[in-house]
Amino acid sequence: MSLQRKKFRYLGESLIEGNIKATASLAIVVIFLILFFILRESLPIFFNPEVQQEITFRHFFSGIQWQPVSDNPRFSLWPIILGSLKVTLIALLFAVPVAVAAALYSSEFAGGRLKELIKPGVELLAGIPSVVLGFFALVVMASFLKDLFGWQIRLNAINAGLALGFAVIPAIYSLAEDAINAVPKSFREAALGLGATPWQSATKVVLPAALPGVSAAVLFGMGRAVGETMVVLMAAGNAPLFSFNPLESTRTMTATIAAELGEVVFGSGHYHALFFIGLVLFAVTFAINLASHALFEGLMTRLYGARK
């Protein structure tokens, strides 16, 4: 008997490990493939003379009209960038206070049983498909709000923003709750021990300590809102108007791709322009998510030192 390595066993184990490792690396490959193929379909705008006869980079930022299908096509991104910003802002104005307050309530004030209910409840909201939210906003909510406030236009940025808020509340809530829960119990005990009320402990000690994480949650929600498609496609009225008025119909970058990619002529300037919008979306959400992640990790490091 010796302790020398058994060849077959060693081989089997390294085969398995190798396979698992290769499979795990797929995630990296996929991210690069996404970037590569979105780039590949957007770059002709910069480098292909034929495409450039139709559209160049300059078109994206000149004028204020997105009219890709007309005798004199316009490709200004301003109206749809504005649309995305407008709808995202409205969604966040609505969702952030609700989600953060709910997270604070459930981790600081709610009793055991209620707490056990809130989280699954929010998860259920998260489980509503965005097409259902869009359907609800389009068929039910829009008419209701129009009648309630006497709006001129049924499908507008506020309608879409609210519905989008429904979609991002769970995202913000769950990350904010994680951040608040990550604040060590000793902080609360110290505050209460010094005679602070539970409200003071929650708002003067816990929330400030969790602030980077809560900001991360807000950014995370923002990434979601910018990237969300179906809700805005269905609820915003789909008109690429350059308007700051939240009561007019609007169109986001995501909705533009969704609405037009189906009918676009393959290889046309319009086709490449839609991929370019996708590239912008990819880059923007990438940056937002990176920042969100960094903030959250920063919070964890601040609270617990270097991560295990």
Partner: peptide, 15 residues
């Protein structure tokens, strides 16, 4: 990569 994949907008997956 996994974190970023989770953040890529669904419509970009479509593209």
């Amino acid at each position: 990569a996994v974190n970023n994949l989770a953040g890529v907008p669904s419509i970009v997956f479509g593209l």
